[in-house]
Design a protein around this nucleic acid. Structure first.
Lengths: 204, 204
DNA sequence: TTTGTGACTTACCGTTCGGTAAGTTTCAAG
DNA sequence: CTTGAAACTTACCGAACGGTAAGTCACAAA
């Protein structure tokens, strides 16, 4: 049970609970009643705020997508060199998954589910983020003439390495034990940086 | 609706349908009635063959896990050089996702869901595959003294790059269009090979 | 010809699902 | 003091869920 902090209105708290539960159990696995119960409310309270489960889910995804874009904007303004921008962004994404693992999980679920769900709601939450990523790559020396597809291929592999690892913590700790996972967690960023450099120092 | 081919008994056909539907919609999203309906059967027929939904899901996962292990055994016997073994295995995994995309999707879902589901069924389908992968890495020149965690970190990033891309086709085609996706699909394996070499030519 | 057995079916069961309808309570503005 | 809206509640609804019980039917063995 979550406490409803005084400075945060119910709607925001519901959104936060929904993010956590959707990330953990998926759209079908998390019921609106269970989400509302986190705040000791009934599901009708949730309906009152969001209209429907589908709209609630949409807001959750939109929020995550916005955060991704914001992170990208921030990284590009914190650094001048495009290569450093990309490295900073990917490193931060890796860091984020430790503080907010729901983000990665939710995005992964959206990747898995958006085919069947798309028949109803056809919004592409990831679009601006991915398009932006491609632009950043195309500013890296040697990549100016790279096509959208070539740039995407390179960056998507790194994105995949990060995201996949981000959702694997429960499985990996169970299989390899806490100690090995801790060591893995330490080795990962170094290896990741190696991969980034190897990838972008060699244009297509 | 699927046709029940004459040489294939109902059980196998159900398993195949279940694999497809679980991959597409997840455990909660796919109902046993919907799976049975694919073969024009009732859900009770499915229960008759598998006992429960949970057991059916278990069999589906086990089958996929077995295929993964088989692919690894095959790759290690087709090649003598450990580096070539790994490259072959990862390349084949990339190829597999095109012919059987359900495999990647199902594994990703298991990665996402096994925390909540694990309270009930604690079988680690991926265990022997991942353990095997680590052993292969540790046979590569320069990696003999690498710890389990170091080897895992390196190979897991590549696994992530492949798996993440494998489940992204619907999203990527919708965002970037069919033409760009086709070009991306062409560029991907080359980039992947570059990443493999960069990763394993530099031990920790 | 009887007896079993595997492969199903129809008929249910209790539970949960998302959502609607119609309140009740709180509280601030007029 | 009244009005009205926001923020909820209880009481439902029909549909779908996983699963049980009790058959029906085909067919092979005894």
């Amino acid at each position: 049970m979550l406490e409803k902090s005084p400075n945060e209105d119910t709607r925001t708290a519901l959104l936060r609970a929904a993010t956590r539960l959707f990330a953990e159990k998926g759209f079908y696995g998390a019921s609106i009643a269970a989400i509302a119960r986190e705040l000791d409310l009934t599901k009708q309270a949730l309906i009152h705020h969001f209209g429907s489960k589908e709209r609630l889910y949409g807001e959750v995804l939109q929020q995550i997508a916005d955060e991704l874009v914001a992170a990208m904007v921030e990284a590009t303004s914190d650094q001048a060199d495009p290569m450093a921008q990309l490295e900073l962004l990917l490193t931060r994404m890796y860091d984020t998954h430790k503080t907010r693992p729901e983000q990665s999980r939710l995005l992964m679920r959206e990747l898995l589910d958006n085919r069947p769900r798309a028949e109803r709601a056809d919004t592409w939450y990831l679009k601006s983020f991915l398009k932006g990523l491609v632009v950043v790559v195309q500013r890296i020396p040697g990549w100016q003439s790279a096509s959208e597809a070539e740039a995407l291929a390179a960056v998507y592999q790194l994105l995949g390495a990060i995201s996949y690892y981000a959702i694997s913590e429960p499985t990996l700790t169970r299989i390899f034990g806490k100690a090995t996972y801790a060591e893995l967690d330490e080795a990962f960023p170094t290896r990741l940086r190696l991969l980034m450099r190897a990838s972008f120092e060699r244009p297509p």
